[in-house]
Design a protein around this nucleic acid. Structure first.
Lengths: 137, 137
DNA sequence: CTAGTTGCAAAGAGTTTGCATGGCG
DNA sequence: CGCCATGCAAACTCTTTGCAACTAG
C-alpha cells in the first residue's frame, strides 16, 4: 500500500512553478495551458488536469466554481501559507480573495455549538460584492 | 421595458409543482427529467434548464455546485420562505441545508466593516461536515 | 393573431479517459 | 528495465442554443 513514486518530469515541475508564481491569483486549467503555449512550451490539457487534481487531493490547492461568469469553469487557488483561510468571491468581477481574519474562528465555534456543523474554512466561500465593485456602483 | 408575458403551460406548472413538493430537497435538472419520465409525462431537458434558470433569476431558487460528487452538476434549492438564509453543504453526504440563524447578521456586519465586502447570504455556502456525518465518524 | 414556450437535435464548454509513446529512477 | 507521466484524440457530462412546431391569451 505504499504511495506510488512521483517522477520529476519537466511538465510537473513547470506546473508547480506556475502555481508558485501565481499563488496570489486564481488558476484555471486554460490559463496554465495558454501560458505555456505562449512560451512556446506547449503542454497537454490532460496533464494539467491530472496535476491539478493531484495537487488538490494533496491539499495544496483548493478547487472552486463560480457561476454567473461566462464559461464558468473550475478555478484553483494556491493554499500554500493560507491553509485554514476562507475565501471571498465577488459575484460581479469573479475575484477570489483570502479571508485572513480571526473572525472565522468565531464562525467556526458558532456553527459547531449551535448547529453541530464542522466547518471547513478552506473550502468555504462567501459570496457577495467586493470592495472595488461596491465602489464602482 | 415591460416584462414579457408569462404563459401558464403544462410544463411550467409541472416544474413549479415539482419544486414546491421538493422544497426541502436539492433539485437537479436530471432529477426533474427522470421524475417526469417515470410518470410517463416526459419533458425536454431544454425546457427544464430554461425554467430553472428563470426561477433562479427570480430569486426563487438558488443554484449551487458541489465537487467531490461524481458527475457534479448544478443543484438547485427552493428558496421560498428562506430568502436571506445561507446554506450548509456537507462534503461527505452532499446534503445542503438552510442556515436559519441570526448569526449570519453578525457575519454580515463584520465582513462589511472590516473587509468592505457586501455579503450575499443567499448564495453563500459553508462547507464542512454535517451533524449526521460527524456522528458516523 | 402573436408572442412566449416547447422539444429535438446539434453545438459548446469543460473535463476525463484509453492508449501508445516516452522518460525518470 | 519497469513504472509512472505525457499527449493526443475520443468520449463524456452537463448545459446552452437554433429552429420549426405549437399554444396560451
Amino acid at each position: 500500500m505504499s504511495k506510488p513514486t512521483i517522477y520529476k518530469t519537466k511538465q510537473r515541475e513547470a506546473i508547480l512553478n506556475y502555481i508558485e508564481k501565481n499563488k496570489e491569483n486564481m488558476i484555471t486549467a486554460r490559463k496554465i495551458y495558454d501560458s505555456f503555449l505562449s512560451l512556446n512550451n506547449p503542454i497537454g490539457m490532460a496533464t494539467i488536469y491530472r496535476r491539478l487534481e493531484e495537487l488538490t487531493e494533496q491539499g495544496l490547492l483548493s478547487k472552486h466554481n463560480i457561476e454567473g461568469i461566462p464559461g464558468a469553469c473550475y478555478r484553483y487557488k494556491s493554499d500554500k501559507e493560507t491553509e485554514g483561510y476562507a475565501h471571498l468571491m465577488c459575484e460581479d468581477c469573479g475575484n477570489l480573495t483570502d479571508l485572513d481574519c480571526d473572525f472565522i474562528k468565531s464562525i467556526n465555534s458558532h456553527l459547531l455549538k449551535e448547529h453541530r456543523f464542522g466547518l471547513n474554512p478552506h473550502k468555504t466561500v462567501f459570496y457577495g460584492t467586493c470592495r472595488e465593485c461596491m465602489g464602482e456602483k
